[in-house]
Design a protein around this nucleic acid. Structure first.
Lengths: 367, 367
DNA sequence: TTGTAGGCGTTATCAA
DNA sequence: TTGATAACGCCTACAA
């Protein structure tokens, strides 16, 4: 336990100790250029003794790249984002890049701050996995046009020189809903979106489309979004949204027999609200989530959900970005859309008489 | 959609446009030193037009600080870590620092890499919230002694010049266990630890202590850790550990009537395994988790758990770190231990006859 | 195989 | 109120 020492060791310090010039030390440290074996040994020994660490600032300043990539995420606790970042890291690591993550807490202002911080510190590129916002998109556009490589994941924003990775959530939402329709459900609720802002959410559009195509009318009362502006509220979790939203739906005179939830957390909130009310899943109410987080296979009943190839999206975004960093920064946009996959588990079964009957009973009772 | 432009704008570029020297531009940008109002306007206008962004590398190199703090986290998807990082960010932001997060995926080697990256890029300080490891601790010690401010959260490692924030998990584990004992339970299982490595886990020590102090014998068969080396296995989630562990316990001739799980995810895994087996919670088996993640209040039944003041720990770690960065870097260690709090919910009730009887029955059956 | 010169973009310091 | 100079630590390019 020595006391912290004052100044960091520099190449020059090592050079002095090893009786060479800083340039020779640099060559040894970076392993390029010819250096006599003995000299190398001596320099390495001194460097180790002095506990040398290269100064990334100076290095980056000179070389005009930092071998660093920044990633902006809305919510760190989200298993989906976690899996994305794993994919990103896997690829970056293979290429010797370091990943620094910034959290924006789903706040456009923090989004912009993160972009700026990363740009200021000269990250070689930025991966953006936050929801689109006006200010965010504007700043992003400036960055892209000032030459910063940018790769977007699932963000509703396009630019000729920023790469884009998404999954087809329109289709995902459509298939989840169609699944419920094919099981016989006609009153299908959606939890997790306010009608005013919902149209930006592709999976919700898929829900609407599926209803329309199958001749079912869209009942606005079946669409609940938890509290208004929930997204802005720190500490307001999505499972709470699922719980609150489900409670609203259960109070309806004619309650839904199936639920499509915005994501798995919302679904779990809904699931528990249903259980708490004494109804059974899936007999009384079927439920579908979205994302297929690990927990979805461990609820009871296990959760039918829509899986997107999350890690692959992260990997692809990283590959696109590296292509831009190490190749032509002005190349046109690379774009790739992944397909989603419906994962049927226990929370959905064909519509039972019980459910329909109970709904009718409830109706009578209330009437 | 302009094409990305080549080189970033520098102070010199602006200076040329605005007919002043780079120094004057610097003064304007940083808002220090005297600058004529007109000059300031002109410079600011040009800077905006050219979409100037300061070069953090050059700035950091010259000023010998980057106003950047790094945080190393084991698992990004962990709500506990998320809440920690929120606390950290809150404090840093107030002081104008940017937070960059590195993920080590619970891997000591990645831990060290993260430390190195952050040190190389001259983060002004590092907050470490990963589990202790030999290599990690060694590298950390070197860093601390070479003058990098370090603040540790819940890490089992002490250094005279690194600050430390923890919660009293020994007591937390003790109280969780005592709670079960006071409810009448005598066969209390622990899920989430292997007997060989478990002693490093304070909450597990608390469990053992509570059993001992209340005259209960520790039954090794009641202590299960999922698969061996689960921590190293990527993709092996803690809820899976809870599920697998619980299944093992249910196969015992004399199964436990209560479970203490290493954390809430593990508890949820166990909870679902129990339900799946047809037993009831809490009537047949009571269960206690740890951490009080948001989901714990939304399971069914809701989860009794141990809450630690997570965000406060993050805040305190950040405050300690800033004190060291902006004050005396050689000051002795600041240390603070937070108290945990048992949160009793629905998953624990007094031991019922049913449970005891059923256990006996099971015993007979198997015998 | 090793060394020298110069500059990356910024700011501290001193001078005008 | 503004400018000139030097230096932060490293690496590219060229020279010896």
């Amino acid at each position: 336990m020595k006391k912290p020492s004052k100044k960091p060791v520099t190449l020059a310090d090592i050079a002095a100790q090893a009786a060479v010039t800083p340039m020779t030390v640099s060559r040894v440290i970076n392993g390029n250029g010819y250096v006599h074996a003995e000299t190398r040994e001596r320099v390495l020994r001194v460097a180790r003794e002095m506990n040398y660490r290269r100064n990334g600032l100076a290095r980056g300043l000179k070389r005009q790249r930092t071998e660093t990539v920044g990633m902006v995420i809305g919510d760190i606790a989200n298993p989906f984002a976690a899996e994305l970042s794993r994919g990103v890291r896997e690829v970056l690591e293979e290429h010797g890049y370091t990943l620094f993550i910034c959290i924006s807490e789903h706040n456009p202002k923090e989004d912009v701050q993160a972009f700026n911080s990363l740009a200021d510190h000269r990250a070689d590129g930025i991966i953006v996995a936050t929801r689109a916002s006006k200010t965010g998109n504007e700043r992003l556009e400036e960055l892209i046009e000032s030459g910063v490589p940018v790769s977007l994941i699932g963000r509703d924003f396009r630019h000729a020189h920023a790469d884009l990775v998404t999954a087809d959530h329109l289709k995902g939402g459509y298939e989840a809903t169609r699944h419920l329709i094919q099981l016989g459900h006609k009153r299908i609720g959606f939890i997790g979106v306010s009608l005013t802002q919902g149209l930006r959410l592709r999976r919700f559009q898929g829900y609407l489309e599926a209803l329309n195509e199958h001749g079912l009318t869209v009942d606005e009362k079946l669409i609940v979004g938890g509290r208004e502006n929930a997204e802005q509220m720190p500490g307001y979790s999505t499972e709470e949204m699922g719980c609150d939203g489900m409670l609203k739906l259960l109070e309806l005179k004619e309650r839904p027999t199936a639920i499509f939830a915005r994501n798995d957390f919302t679904a779990m909130g809904a699931l528990n609200a249903i259980k708490r009310s004494g109804l059974r899943i899936p007999e009384d109410i079927a439920i579908v989530g979205y994302d297929d987080i690990p927990l979805a296979a461990h609820t009871s009943p296990t959760l039918t959900t829509v899986r997107q190839p999350t890690r692959e999206q992260g990997r692809t975004a990283a590959e696109f970005l590296l292509g831009r960093i190490e190749g032509d920064r002005e190349q046109p946009r690379c774009e790739r859309t992944f397909q989603c996959e419906l994962v049927v588990r226990e929370s959905t079964i064909p519509l039972t008489e019980a459910s329909v009957t109970q709904t009718r009973k409830r109706q009578k009772k209330t009437a």
